[in-house]
């Protein structure tokens, strides 16, 4: 049976992601774009994510210990300036109190969550198949299949997976939702137990709800019908999310506008002839070829202009 199945559908079994446009996903390819010029780094998205997805607030000590559960984190980078060799400048440098930071540049920041790679390095290494590529282009995580080998996290170049080091709902020890805080848990989302890996799901509970609705009405999900929690909370509207295959979608238009092709690891965005719109789109660690589904729009700074 399986052999017959194998021989009949052979070509289908040899398809690989990323499809590169020739063979799209089955109606859906969820993707995101984050405009760093609009983003203020206010952390609202992160907070919304905590609320929506029942993330454990682990506390200061465990946070400093690297055990935090922030699916969406705002990373902060400071510009390092080399220490001046000229003694006069060195005095000024030390006196300014800037230390190693470059104060007028300020911090760079970057909201980063699971990039839902088309060729995700985490998927292939999971021994039990707890993380897979879904047909709508999401990198799924199956909590009750996970055995906690943490290989996915080792192989994730962005390190955006988070491991449940403790049982955060255990009333005896690590209860982070004591009464009545447990009332605010989102009933649509599991509270994960100790020993499983978790990560951003693109708010899959919301996606599935609208996709079921759309299917009963025999159509695809419309643009604007679903929002992720972070997108909803972003006061500046820096995050756009949607079905990339939908020609109306804002995110699909942005990707095309920025000349970022999901199936390429080297973008030809700067080679458009006669196209003067500045191309700001980029993806993180594209050279490792995970083909991430999240595009960032470069932050243009006054000093760099």
């Amino acid at each position: 049976m399986s052999i017959a199945n194998l021989l009949q559908n052979w070509s289908r079994y040899r398809d690989t992601h990323p499809y590169g446009g020739a063979k799209p996903h089955m109606g859906y390819k969820w993707a995101m774009a984050i405009d760093m010029d609009i983003c203020t780094g206010c952390n609202a998205c992160s907070v919304a994510c905590y609320a929506e997805n029942n993330l454990a607030v682990v506390g200061k000590e465990k946070f400093l210990n690297g055990k935090s559960m922030h699916w969406l984190r705002i990373e902060r980078y400071w510009h390092d300036t080399p220490e001046p060799t000229d003694p006069l400048q060195l005095t000024a440098y030390t006196a300014s109190g800037a230390g190693k930071h470059f104060p007028d540049q300020g911090a760079h920041f970057l909201p980063i969550m699971c990039q839902h790679c088309e060729a995700a390095p985490c998927e292939t290494v999971c021994p039990v198949g707890a993380t897979n590529h879904t047909q709508d282009g999401i990198n799924s995580q199956i909590y009750n299949r996970c055995v906690g080998s943490r290989y996915c996290l080792v192989n994730c170049p962005y390190k955006v997976r988070y491991f449940n080091w403790y049982n955060y709902q255990d009333p005896a020890t690590e209860n982070v939702w004591p009464e009545p805080l447990n009332q605010q848990l989102n009933p649509d989302v599991t509270v994960r137990s100790k020993g499983v890996m978790e990560k951003c799901t693109f708010c899959v509970q919301r996606l599935r709800a609208v996709m079921v609705d759309a299917r009963t009405e025999e159509r695809l999900v419309r643009e604007g019908e679903v929002q992720t929690a972070c997108q909803q909370a972003c006061m500046a509207g820096a995050i756009s999310f949607g079905n990339m295959l939908n020609p109306d979608s804002r995110v699909g238009k942005q990707w095309i506008e920025q000349g970022v092709n999901i199936a390429l690891d080297v973008q030809s965005k700067n080679e458009h002839v006669g196209d003067n719109t500045p191309k700001r789109g980029y993806r993180i660690l594209e050279n490792l070829r995970p083909y991430p589904s999240v595009m960032y729009l470069e932050q243009v700074r006054e000093s760099s202009v």
């Binding site: 399986s2 199945n5 079994y13 040899r14 398809d15 992601h17 897979n132």
Partner: peptide, 19 residues
């Protein structure tokens, strides 16, 4: 192994074919 993979299409891994 190949038969198991071919009958378990849900376990699709990005970047790799199903078999």
């Amino acid at each position: 192994v190949s038969g198991a993979q071919a009958n378990f299409f849900e376990q699709l891994k990005g970047g790799k074919p199903i078999v």
